[in-house]
Design a protein around this nucleic acid. Sequence first.
DNA 1: GGGTCATGTGACCATGAAGTCATATGATGC
DNA 2: GCATCATATGACTTCATGGTCACATGACCC
Lengths: 217, 217
Amino acid sequence: MPKETFFNLPDEKRRLIENTAITEFAARGFDKASVNTIVQNSGIAKGSFYQYFTGKKDLFFYIIMEVAARRKLQYMSPVLKNPEGIDFFIILKELFISGLRFAAEHPELEKLGMWVVNNTGHPVYNELFNGSGHLSTDIYRQMLSASADRGELRSDIDIDFISFLFPVLLSGTMDYCLKNSCGKKVDGVSDISDEIMKKVDLMIDFLRDGIGKIKMA
Amino acid sequence: MPKETFFNLPDEKRRLIENTAITEFAARGFDKASVNTIVQNSGIAKGSFYQYFTGKKDLFFYIIMEVAARRKLQYMSPVLKNPEGIDFFIILKELFISGLRFAAEHPELEKLGMWVVNNTGHPVYNELFNGSGHLSTDIYRQMLSASADRGELRSDIDIDFISFLFPVLLSGTMDYCLKNSCGKKVDGVSDISDEIMKKVDLMIDFLRDGIGKIKMA
DNA sequence: GGGTCATGTGACCATGAAGTCATATGATGC
DNA sequence: GCATCATATGACTTCATGGTCACATGACCC
């Protein structure tokens, strides 16, 4: 956690530091991110940095846990906050769209998140999610189990295996959409284009016909 | 390319350097891999290293292009070398199994490969595959097109999108299998266990029912 | 004005990186 | 025995890093 001096800073300065840090961490990952660069681009002295944070890791954790999480929460649709009893594929679609919206509006935070999930095994990752293991997989497993209980899924699917595959598939599709720049910004607020909605439906279709009940021909 | 002095080295010494490099690059990636460490663990002097290679990148490229590719080729089943006219899902299964066999027997080379695909955008990646873009996606696109022409697939799938998803799915399943240590070694030669074959079939099923023709109920 | 104390500062330090170079070694030809 | 020349060596340079510290600044109180 940052020291009190950091939170005493005027909002503008604090946010400048946060944003500079996000840019740097997103661009270069934790290891290669340079405190010197952050310090320079924030217009603060090196010494000040260590008045605010105990070190690079301190800042990184703060950015990930506080800033990123806080901003991402705003993108959760209501259906995600109360997912009980709602069709699995609808939840999935919402999950996906909110993810894409977030990625389109905060590409740097998205990149940061990608760094984290791509660096399981990094000492910093283990310290971040101390012992909590694979959090996202657990969520999917629960969702899948509930859905299976409601009879929405084929009876023979391997929940453990499929729940592992889920985040992989989601982030893959996300990549595809971002690389083809399906999300565009209008008036500073990102808009989910028709094109991107088509991709999402496509992917859900792909999934459903894969693990949903067998359909009539 | 390494200099001639390197190829003049006795086989044993040359291989020691190669293996040491593979270990180091696999463990720490390109940037964090240390020439000093490689040099120490190979038992050669720093100066000798620069007699053999023009620099760290030179060695890395050599390892990726020559050593890794050469060793991986041995794992390609015959069906992969002449894939024309063979059922798409059979090819896919072969592709997958050979990948798993390779990963089980050469975990370090596998890790190295993973580093490469996870570091698209790294200067070194772009230099490696200079302008050639996404090679694997292209292969899948061809396979999918051919299969679609043969009528093995649903008519409404988005080939571009699905071919992008393929390597993602494959490597995801690979991860799952490796994390659950489905591949075990017997007498130094790895064996594809029944358990792992079940996972492979599961995944192919998942795919086929997703993008294959609609089945009767 | 003077004292106090949180905050700001950048030269500085230790470390480890990639890469260099003057020198040493040893095999070969004569 | 000696000269030559490819190869081997590790102390060295240069550079960037994360982190420290003695000192400067300035707001506030008496």
